[in-house]
Simulated scan of single mutants.
Amino acid sequence: MKSETVGSATLETWSVEEVEQAFAANEIVLIDVRTPQEYIFEHIEGALLMPMAFFKAEKLPGQTEKRIVLHCGSGIRSEKMARLAIDAGVTKIAHMDGGFGAWKTAKKPYIGTDMASGAPKRVG
């Protein structure tokens, strides 16, 4: 994990493996900031959706029990939303390096769409 001090806050960048392990251990809340359409088509099972267009940092849950890790498609939008959260007063936030694209490249499981039926299906 890489970390950067932004004022009095800490912005962390987690690897896919770190996110997978912490998510499996129920240590984090994983929040997808992609569009609803992207999420419906494919997403990490159990990840919550707070699209960038409607992102309200002040509505994020507290982090007393679980850390928050944001992710998007490539890591660009999630980093932008993490910085927005810091601007809103969140003192520690993380995002996943490489986003969902890196998750898929690492062959991690996710919910995709069966192109023949349009139904959701587990991949990986």
Rank of each mutant, 00 (worst) to 15 (best):
D32S: 09
G98H: 11
I44K: 03
A88W: 09
E38P: 13
H95S: 03
A85K: 02
E79D: 09
A94P: 07
L60Y: 01
L49Y: 01
F55W: 06
V19T: 07
D114G: 05
M52C: 14
A53C: 06
M115E: 10
E42Y: 12
T105K: 15
A119D: 12
A9L: 00
A106R: 07
K104R: 15
G118F: 00
A106T: 03
K108V: 00
G118P: 03
T10M: 01
V19C: 10
P61G: 11
T113Q: 04
A47Y: 07
M96V: 06
D97K: 15
I111L: 08
A102W: 12
M81D: 08
P61W: 10
E4A: 00
E38H: 14
S15P: 12
I68W: 06
A9R: 02
D87C: 00
A22S: 05
I40K: 14
S117G: 06
C72N: 07
F41Q: 15
A57H: 04
A82E: 04
V29N: 12
I28T: 08
G118I: 08
R34Y: 01
E42A: 12
T13W: 12
K59D: 14
R77L: 07
G99Q: 04
H95N: 05
A119Q: 13
S78M: 08
T64W: 12
A53D: 09
L84E: 12
P51F: 11
Q37N: 06
V6N: 04
H43S: 09
G98A: 13
D87P: 00
V69D: 01
P36Y: 13
N26M: 10
A57P: 02
I86W: 04
L70Y: 01
E79G: 11
A102L: 14
S117V: 08
L11S: 05
K66T: 11
E12V: 13
Q37P: 02
A88V: 06
Q37T: 10
S15L: 10
I93T: 05
R67N: 04
G62C: 11
A22E: 05
I86M: 06
T91M: 15
F54N: 15
M96G: 00
L48I: 00
C72V: 10
L30T: 04
W103M: 07
V90K: 04
V29M: 13
A119R: 14
G7H: 03
I40Y: 12
G99K: 03
F54G: 13
K66P: 00
S8D: 13
I86C: 02
S15Y: 08
G112L: 10
E27S: 08
E18M: 13
A57N: 03
I68L: 01
M115W: 05
F54R: 15
G118A: 12
L60H: 07
L84Y: 10
R67Y: 00
Q63G: 05
K92M: 11
E42L: 08
E45T: 06
G62A: 15
G73I: 05
F41M: 14
I44E: 01
G89K: 13
E45Q: 02
A94R: 02
G73R: 11
T35K: 04
R122D: 13
D97W: 09
E17K: 06
L70M: 05
E20A: 15
W103G: 08
E45M: 04
K121C: 02
P109M: 12
R77I: 01
I68V: 03
F55C: 05
A88I: 10
I31H: 02
W14I: 10
C72F: 05
L30S: 01
E12C: 14
I40S: 12
L48M: 08
A53L: 01
T64K: 15
A102N: 14
